[in-house]
Design a protein around this nucleic acid. Structure first.
Length: 272
DNA sequence: AACAGCACCTGTAGGC
DNA sequence: TGCCTACAGGTGCTGT
C-alpha cells in the first residue's frame, strides 16, 4: 500500500498525538514483526518519551534519544490506528501502549516491520534523498550514470526514498518517459522535467491525504482522495487524458507498469 | 552490476 | 454458494 504521501499523511496525524508522550510498553503475539526482536524493543522503549515523530522515505520514525529511534514500515497492508481503550481489531500485530493512549499496528499480510535503530545514521545511509525535494531529486538522477530502466531506478530506495509503484508510473507519465527507458539515454533536460514532476505529484497526493486503492487508511481509518487524480496507474484500457490512446499495462521487474504508448514512446538510441 | 525469481502473508475479485 | 486462480501498493534474498 503506502508510498511517501500515504506515510506522510499518517506521520502528520501521529505527530499531534505522540510527540512528548511516554511509552509504557509494547504488546504483541507476532514476534517476527520486530527487529532485532520484541525483547530488545520493549527494553529500550519502556519509560522513554517520544521526542519527535517524523518520516524518512516510507519509514515512520519515533525518536527516542539523541541518535536512537524506532522505525515503523507499513510495507503493503500496514495501518496505525488509535484507540483510547482496549479494543479487538482484526489483524492487530502489535500495540504501542502509551500513557493515556494505545496505538494499534494492524497488518493483514504481516509484511510490515517495527525496527529499533541504536543509531539512526545506519538507516539513513541505506536511503537516497527524499523524493519531495526537487533539487536533491535532480542531483540523485544526474549522478546515477546507469543503463538501468528509469522505473527500476525510481523504485530503488537507495537512489530516491519514497517512490513506489503508483507514483513511479505517474512520474514517468508526467515526464513523457516510457518506464523501460534506460537512464543513460535520457537527455538532461528531460531528467530536469522528471525531477520537477516527482515532488509535484507527491505533494499533490499529500494534499489529498494519499491514494487509497483498498488497504491504505489514515489513523482515523479513512481513505485518501488522490485516486481520482491518477493518470495511468490502474487505468488499463482507459483513454489517456492527454491523447485518448488506451493506457497499457506491462509487467516489468515483477511489478505492473502502466503507461500511455503514445505519450511515452520507448526511444532507444541506436548507433548505426 | 543488473536482473529475474521467489519468499514473506492474507484478502479480494473474477471465472466457472 | 463454493471452489479455484490470479493478483495486490514493498522489500530482501538468492542465483544467474
Amino acid at each position: 500500500m503506502p508510498e511517501l504521501p500515504e506515510v506522510e499523511t499518517v506521520v502528520r496525524e501521529l505527530r499531534s498525538c505522540l510527540n512528548g508522550r511516554q511509552i509504557l510498553d509494547w504488546l504483541s503475539d507476532f514476534p517476527k514483526t520486530f527487529e532485532p526482536d520484541l525483547t530488545t524493543i520493549r527494553r529500550v522503549s519502556r519509560g522513554k518519551t517520544i521526542r519527535e515523530v517524523r518520516r524518512r522515505g516510507k519509514y515512520i520514525l519515533l525518536s527516542l534519544g539523541e541518535k536512537s529511534c524506532i522505525s515503523i514500515h507499513l510495507r503493503m497492508t500496514g495501518k496505525c490506528i488509535f484507540a483510547p481503550t482496549e479494543r479487538d481489531i482484526n489483524h492487530t500485530r502489535a500495540i504501542l501502549d502509551l500513557k493515556g493512549l494505545r496505538l494499534y499496528y494492524v497488518d493483514p499480510r504481516r509484511f510490515g516491520r517495527i525496527h529499533y535503530w541504536p543509531d539512526y545514521a545506519e538507516l539513513d545511509a541505506k536511503l537516497g534523498p527524499d523524493a519531495t525535494d526537487p533539487h536533491q531529486v535532480l542531483q540523485a538522477l544526474l549522478s546515477c550514470h546507469s543503463h538501468r530502466a528509469i522505473k527500476s531506478l525510481l523504485l530503488d530506495q537507495s537512489v530516491l526514498a519514497g517512490l513506489g509503484n503508483i507514483y513511479a508510473d505517474e512520474a514517468c507519465f508526467a515526464a513523457g518517459l516510457h518506464p523501460e527507458t534506460p537512464r543513460d539515454q535520457i537527455p538532461n533536460d528531460q531528467l530536469k522535467i522528471l525531477a520537477r514532476k516527482i515532488p509535484g505529484i507527491l505533494n499533490k497526493s499529500i494534499r489529498h491525504m494519499g491514494t487509497t486503492l483498498s488497504d491504505y487508511r489514515t489513523t482515523q481509518n479513512i481513505g485518501g482522495q488522490n485516486r481520482q487524480f491518477l493518470k495511468v496507474y490502474g487505468q488499463l484500457g482507459k483513454a489517456c487524458s492527454t491523447c485518448s490512446t488506451p493506457i497499457e499495462k506491462k509487467v516489468l521487474a515483477g511489478r505492473s507498469s502502466h503507461f500511455c504508448p503514445s505519450c511515452q514512446p520507448l526511444q532507444i538510441a541506436t548507433i548505426l
